[in-house]
Simulated assay, not measured.
Amino acid sequence: MNAEFNGIISPENLVYKKPELMNEVPMHYCPGCSHGVVHKLIGEVIEEMEMEEKTVGVSPVGCAVFAYRYLDIDWQEAAHGRAPAVATGIKRLWPDRLVFTYQGDGDLACIGTAETIHALNRGENIVIIFINNAIYGMTGGQMAPTTLLGQKTATCPYGRDAELHGYPIKITEIAAQLEGTCYVTRQSVESVASIRSAKRAIRKAFEASMAGKGSSLVEIVSTCSSGWKLSPVKANEWMKNNMFPFYPKGDLKDKTSE
């Protein structure tokens, strides 16, 4: 992603240099998982903004709980779903810090719905990075609030049924309607073009936070090969064919220029 080609393709030009903030620790994520890519993007943006010593990440419970092992910044652990509340306290105490949460869909859109909605509505100058893979990945593949209709999980083995389980929740669309949000976007990281777009979105959200423009939500539509019981390649195909039509990508709200 950072390679300088200068019109010449060589092995040296094709080597990706990972962010210096990334620790030399083997990742525990499953093959094909989107988390590792997003971690690297966050690390790149923090370094480019020269905020290494002034960034605080907040991770609650879920697949993202060990994010502190991989990014060498200050971290605070939060109870399940409570990351936006913890981030609110940190940002109010240290307004000069770049404060973000890193949350999955079960954590953010179910257990922490109240904390998420109210923090965004208050316009707290924090960034919420929302990994949406439509399933509880860490705890056994149960149905999440974002699980699609007809999608099979451990707790809806015949597929999600609207009459029985309700409808999938579009938390990002809800966030876009709140007065306190300045930037709300939905991205993905399944291709080079998507990765570049996601990085731009994270950078814009971080900059808006530091400029005191209000809350930002960056959703990353992601795969869960293990939970979906698909290979990484098949999981990407399934995401494109099923997730993107229901969770369309792009900016839903952008008031950063105001």
Rank of each mutant, 00 (worst) to 15 (best):
A134F: 12
K199A: 06
F244K: 08
L41K: 03
E24G: 14
E179Y: 09
Q177D: 14
A109S: 11
E115Y: 15
A154K: 11
G180S: 10
G32N: 01
Y158I: 13
G137R: 00
T223I: 07
V45N: 01
V45R: 01
D107Y: 04
S10R: 10
A87M: 06
C63I: 00
A83N: 08
Y247Q: 02
F246P: 11
K204W: 00
T223V: 08
K255W: 14
P19K: 11
G81F: 08
S34C: 11
E52D: 10
T88Q: 13
S191N: 06
I73Q: 00
S194E: 12
V45Y: 00
T139G: 07
P157W: 00
G62R: 03
Q187L: 04
A235D: 00
G150H: 07
P19Q: 10
G89S: 06
D105E: 12
C156A: 11
M22P: 15
N132F: 04
N132I: 00
N241A: 14
N132H: 03
K249D: 13
K18M: 14
A208H: 04
G159Q: 03
S226W: 06
G212M: 00
D96E: 03
S194N: 12
A205Q: 01
I202Q: 05
I135Q: 00
R69S: 10
I220D: 00
S222L: 04
W238H: 14
Y183I: 03
L108S: 09
G166L: 07
